[in-house]
Design a protein around this nucleic acid. Structure first.
Lengths: 202, 202
DNA sequence: TGATACTTACCGAACGTTCAGTAGAAGTTA
DNA sequence: TAACTTCTACTGAACGTTCGGTAAGTATCA
């Protein structure tokens, strides 16, 4: 992965609050997320949360960091030497063929957080950075593929943005619709796109 | 457009409430959307809203209908006889090269509403239907292209889902990040995808 | 003893919702 | 035509609940 941001380390108490926030968000959604609800999940009083965070805004900004860390950790790629495999690896991480419950939940939480980026500047900056990093990671793989002669001489940025948009769109649909088969179809079609657009055919 | 749902007609009072809700949503976001805020935009008392709607839930469900109607009206395609042009037309409607402020706002509102589909069953069903309809519309165009011999013999559903995911992803990014150039790059790459994946090359 | 990590008890504001009352238009009867 | 009743579309005040946030006190441990 390109440009790894330094990971924050969470104290035990903070980590527990983050987990409680995560659970509260899954249960009640962003619109129904309150300090009381987080405290209930935490098993402590509201004031206990205010001992660690000065305001709800601050807690949420911190939680965004937490969720993003978790997301990027699942995507983190140990790059191999085969660009086609690397590309497939990244796509499988972002848009698994059969996502387990944990992956589904994390993506659901991220979709809820991301929608706040429409009106909230702090959230918007974070998600801009996430997409920047993901696009860069994909672009690097494509560039390597071209250098190695595996891929045709396409515009790596253009292809990276296209792949990212497709993956994000399918992930978004997975979290907000019951069209599971559509996500699967997109995965399959994306593979065939990569094959026809990128691979040199003899 | 396939399967046009019968459009609801809005009384003057209802329409004003819907417009007020629209403005309140743009200003305060979904999480900050309250009856007081809608009433303020409406220029009437809170109770005036409860005269027309029994509960906030009901108002929101109705507003979802309103926003979806508006969205599908902008997409509604007068289909021509050239599949390539038709496809480009749909894509331009969903992912305009240079969206005006109205389009941006409507898409922003839809992204905020759509994130509620993660936890709200009513919203989820609506967005499932929207994507179903969009995918069907694209699929029909592709099918026609194949029948006419303009397009190669691909799987129309698969391609439709791929195009829809890409367009949704770029639209989503446009509403939640500052990566405007990424959306443009995706548009361009999508055109080249359609060309290489669909068009018969001599 | 003093710092750490809380709890209990509370505040004012905002929330969704309800209710009694009312201006004015529309319909009905004398 | 005037007098009445009724209906529509509201208003303003209040309801109980929940919100984010705080002040003061307490238990635990170095």
């Amino acid at each position: 992965m390109a440009a790894d941001a330094p990971k924050r380390d969470w104290s035990a108490a903070e980590a527990e609050i983050m987990e409680a926030t995560y659970r509260a968000l899954l249960e009640h959604g962003y619109a129904g997320l309150s300090i009381s609800r987080i405290a209930a999940e935490l098993g402590k009083s509201k004031a206990a949360i205010y001992y660690h965070y000065d305001a709800k805004d601050e807690l949420l900004a911190t939680f965004l960091e937490f969720a993003v860390d978790r997301f990027e950790a699942t995507v983190a790629t140990e790059t191999g030497d085969e660009p086609t495999a690397d590309l497939e690896h990244v796509i499988e991480k972002l848009l698994p063929l059969q996502p387990d419950e944990e992956q589904r939940q994390l993506q659901a939480v991220l979709v809820e957080l991301r929608s706040q980026a429409v009106t909230n500047e702090v959230f918007r900056e974070q998600f801009t950075r996430i997409d920047d990093r993901l696009a860069a990671a994909i672009r690097d793989i494509v560039e390597r593929g071209i250098d190695e002669g595996t891929f045709r001489d396409v515009d790596p940025s253009r292809v990276a943005e296209h792949v990212l948009a497709t993956v994000n769109g399918a992930m978004y649909a997975r979290a907000t619709t019951d069209r599971e088969s559509a996500a699967a179809a997109t995965r399959v079609s994306l593979a065939s796109y990569i094959d026809s657009e990128l691979r040199r055919h003899p």
